[in-house]
Design a binder for these strands. Structure first.
Length: 472
RNA sequence: GGCCCCAUGGUCAAGUGGUUAAGACACCGCCCUUUCACGGCGGCCACCCGGGUUCGAAUCCCGGUGGGGUCACCA
């Protein structure tokens, strides 16, 4: 049987990586089985709809490299993939269940106000007579349609592919609302109808649905439909107590991209949160993921999102880029730097590529070429090189005339400074450290002393050394 | 509170009755590099607690504890 999975986000804002991961897994599972991956937009809550959110879903999926086979813009046989446009369908099915006695009209007006209390609906309208219902309807009273959970000692159970056997007693289930008074279906109901009508075989979703799934299964049973397989996913957490949420702005996929994370790296990283491959390889391309994804590699417990590890993976991806691809990816970020357009871009990129964790680090990494005044003189104090400010002054004073007479290329500068060291009775490292600090004014630079000197040019380098001597 | 789920180092995690309890990130140290980084090598660090079952338990069972989820005309 063909495997069909779906990703069903609701357009209520940007897409955070936890959400995206659910879509990713659904995609991987379908592709791995040569199946079909479907995108469905769940916009039944008109109140929470956010303008542009649907486009954000499309953009994010595209950047992430997740192609859907069916969905908005890729309709199959007249199927509609946007819930709000399927309204009529839900009502038809809801009434069918009313007819069968598995659902009923409810005219209670006060139940939708959350009173802080907990509990189930009291079934006040569950046993209204046909006449009473008709009277309300004739009167134009607003109503909702509720499912009728059997009032017996039964249990609804199923086997989840990651959590195993789940059972919930009827008495613990609520007569949930299927159709709201505005005529829109609730998520709970629309989901079942849609998943069935789109022939979804495997449902991947967050485990917050683990305990309500028996209720959905009841619906499948009422209709006489075959139940799908369930693959519930443990959440991605911000910390031990909090799930990743839209409020945690940093978890926004597009935000990460604009901060200089490569989409492939983000996708790779989130794939590893809650799933682990059989081997020890962690850098996995989309096709690796499709090949290696497996249900038994899914975790039942939550994972905490670790930005530090994602930075590391991002670095792996940046390093692996060809110089051309790196230049293309890096240029928009370099454009924000004060150095943009003033120095040898090719040289800068060559120095930068192996040292970056995110592209967004480019400006602060390279801005020293334009920002140098007033740096902290304590930088000259270095234990390993045994340097301090006095020694720095001595070294720089000696280095200045040497450099003035040195051809301005990497090897010459390095050679000249290396030869200078023994005449001063210090190690090469000490000379190079002091020169690098003097011309860059930073502890960390995208290259050594000679490379920075070449980048800055002879004139700037020498004037910075002079300036440093004066300050020392 | 009822119901459902979860529990291996700081973090991601392997592990499905017998292992010196993998690997990765982070951290620390050493080496390499005529300089910063990169890189290489090494180190530190874990089975929530208590009872069972068993010759033997991280692994199976029960009970605690802790955490998450759910109990909406939100998804």
């Amino acid at each position: 049987m063909e495997v069909r999975t779906r990703f069903a986000p609701s357009p209520t804002g940007f897409m955070h990586v936890g959400n995206l991961r659910t879509g990713l897994y659904a995609y991987l599972f379908a592709k791995q089985h040569g199946g079909t991956f479907i995108l469905r937009i769940e916009d039944t809550d008109q109140g929470r709809y956010v303008e542009g959110a649907t486009d954000a879903i499309f953009r994010t999926l595209k950047m992430a490299g997740i192609d859907y086979d069916e969905g908005p813009g890729k309709e199959k046989e007249g199927m509609i993939y946007v819930q709000s446009q399927r309204k009529a369908l839900y009502k038809k099915y809801a009434l069918e269940l009313v007819e069968k006695g598995h659902a009923y009209y409810c005219f209670c007006q006060d139940r939708h106000v959350k009173d802080g209390g907990v509990g189930k609906y009291d079934k006040k309208c569950a046993h209204l007579s046909r006449e009473e219902v008709q009277a309300h309807l004739d009167n134009g009273d607003p109503y909702v349609i509720r499912m009728r959970v059997p009032e017996t000692d039964g249990v609804s159970e199923y086997d989840d592919m990651v959590y195993g056997h789940i059972a919930v007693a009827y008495k613990d289930m609520d007569d949930m609302i299927m159709l709201k008074s505005d005529g829109m279906p609730t998520y709970n109901f629309a989901n079942v109808i849609d998943d069935h009508s789109m022939n979804i075989t495997h449902i991947l979703r967050g485990n917050e649905y683990l305990s309500s799934t028996p209720q959905y299964n009841l619906l499948y049973d009422f209709f006489g439909w075959q139940r799908p397989q369930y693959i519930h996913l443990a959440p991605i957490m911000r910390d031990h107590e909090h799930k990743l949420s839209k409020r945690y702005g940093d978890a926004n996929f597009e935000d990460f991209v604009s901060k200089g994370y490569l989409p492939e790296a983000i996708v790779n990283y989130i794939a590893l949160l809650g799933w682990s491959p059989k081997g020890n390889q962690e850098k996995l391309s989309m096709s690796d993921l499709i090949e290696q994804f497996s249900i038994d590699g899914l975790s039942q417990s939550p994972s905490i999102f670790d930005p530090v590890k994602m930075r590391w993976l991002n670095k792996e991806y940046i390093t692996a880029l060809s110089p051309e691809a790196f230049a293309e990816a890096a240029r928009p970020f370099f454009a924000k730097s004060k150095a943009y357009g003033k120095y040898d871009e090719e040289l800068i990129f060559k120095l930068l590529q192996p040292r970056l964790e995110t592209l967004g680090d480019i400006p602060e990494m390279i801005d020293f070429v334009e920002e140098w005044d007033g740096y902290d003189l304590e930088l000259f104090v270095h234990q390993k090189n045994k340097t301090d400010k006095d020694l720095a002054k001595t070294i720089l004073t000696a280095a200045l005339p040497v450099l003035e007479n040195t051809p301005w290329d990497n090897d010459s500068i390095l050679g000249a400074l290396s030869e200078l060291a023994p005449t001063l009775g210090v190690k090469k490292g000490a000379v190079l450290w002091c020169v690098r600090i003097a011309i860059a004014g930073r502890a960390v630079t995208p290259g050594g002393a000679s490379e920075m000197a070449v980048l800055l040019g002879k004139e700037t380098s020498l004037s910075r050394i002079k300036g440093s001597i004066v300050r020392l």
